[in-house]
Amino acid sequence: MSETEQNQANKKLIVRLVGIVGGMFLFAFALVPLYDVFCEITGINGKTRGKAIYQSVEVNKQREVTVEFITDINRGMPWEFKSLVKSIKVHPGELNEVKFYAKNTSRKDIIGQTVPSISPGEGALYLNKTECFCFDQQRLAAGEEVEMPMKFYVDSEIPDDITHLTLSYKLFNVTDAVEVASGATK
């Protein structure tokens, strides 16, 4: 090979290799949505899906699944937050509604965000929420209290070995984050 041929061959190979490097860098970021898809398929982490649309199906009256509600408040969040029912038994396929209660006990306006998580993780595939406060952030004025509805149904496809679902909501104070973000856009 002559020197120019050699250089050209090198250049071609380098371009390809740099292409792989760039591609893999982007792939790292693509892992973020891919991970969500992966979670949705496998139920890793008990991440729940977004808003579901309820289609009335035949309710399986033979089966009962216990759905338990747990609430948790993260540090730095001066709210009261609890589920008004501890747990209910539901039939797969039927639409249910439960209510949650929140009160801002501080003397400031605060924006809260609840993050849901379901255990066992596989159960997340079968618990569908048609209406949930966790889809949005809540802003409560000082001392304000609110009752928040959550509508859901358990998919009738749910495997027989899942008899118990625990739906946990963790409440975070996102006031600073929201204000920083809106400050940035101003």
């Binding site: 993260n74 540090r75 730095g76 969040m77 001066p78 501080s106 975070f172 104070n173 996102v174 006031t175 600073d176 984050a177």
Partner: peptide, 17 residues
């Protein structure tokens, strides 16, 4: 009082209320 009772979000300061 606020920071001790409620903690501070996004830091290691816990709510001791």
């Amino acid at each position: 009082i606020d920071i001790v009772v409620n903690g501070k979000a996004g830091t290691a300061m816990a709510a001791y209320g």
